[in-house]
């Protein structure tokens, strides 16, 4: 067993695991953060997306030991005090989910996408960026709407802050 220490959602956390333990299992089973989902087990569906040192990754395709010493953000870590993250709020408003299983991965992907594109997002780009996330309810239309709305909202807030 190896002791893995990492910063998760701003808090230093650690746990013991085998070297072969996947990051997603470590997060769910050792740290008790079950918002991150295991969907496909074949690195395709994106339900397990978390941010590793600020970049979206599939936590089912990374070993927990690889992430030791890193900073991880999960779906539990993006909302403010008693307030949804703008992407979460937009998924709610635009009904960007049906069964909700893929939603944590979709939201984490959207947060990363909006940050990387600096507000310069259109429908085509959003759909391309969602390549790594599968929604088996096939609710993509509302997911795309939610991402675009969140992007607008966040850019508006950024503009206001700048003024």
């Amino acid at each position: 067993m190896t002791k893995v220490t990492l910063t998760v959602n701003g808090r230093a956390m650690s746990g013991e695991c085998d070297d072969r333990t996947l990051l997603v299992h470590f997060i769910r089973e050792k740290l008790g953060l079950t918002g991150t989902h295991v969907g496909c087990d074949t690195t395709q569906c994106g339900a397990c997306v978390v941010h590793l040192d600020g970049r979206s990754v599939k936590s089912c395709s990374i070993l927990a030991v690889q992430a030791a010493g890193s900073t991880v953000t999960t779906i539990e870590g993006i909302a403010g005090q008693g307030e949804l993250h703008p992407v979460q709020a937009a998924f709610n408003t635009h009904h960007g989910l049906q069964c909700g299983f893929c939603t944590p991965g979709m939201v984490m992907t959207a947060v990363d996408m909006i940050a990387r594109h600096g507000g310069d997002l259109d429908e085509h780009t959003v759909r391309h960026e969602l390549d790594g996330n599968i929604c088996r309810c096939t609710g993509y239309h509302n997911i795309v709407k939610a991402v675009l709305a969140a992007n607008e909202e966040m850019q508006g807030a950024a503009r206001q802050a700048a003024e």
């Binding site: 690195t43 994106g46 997306v49 590793l52 970049r55 979206s56 990754v57 599939k58 395709s61 990374i62 992907t109 990363d112 996408m113 960026e129 390549d131 790594g132 996330n133």
Partner: peptide, 9 residues
């Protein structure tokens, strides 16, 4: 290549 998450790793 792959998707955004794959390209990050």
């Amino acid at each position: 290549i792959g998707d955004p998450h794959v390209r990050h790793m």
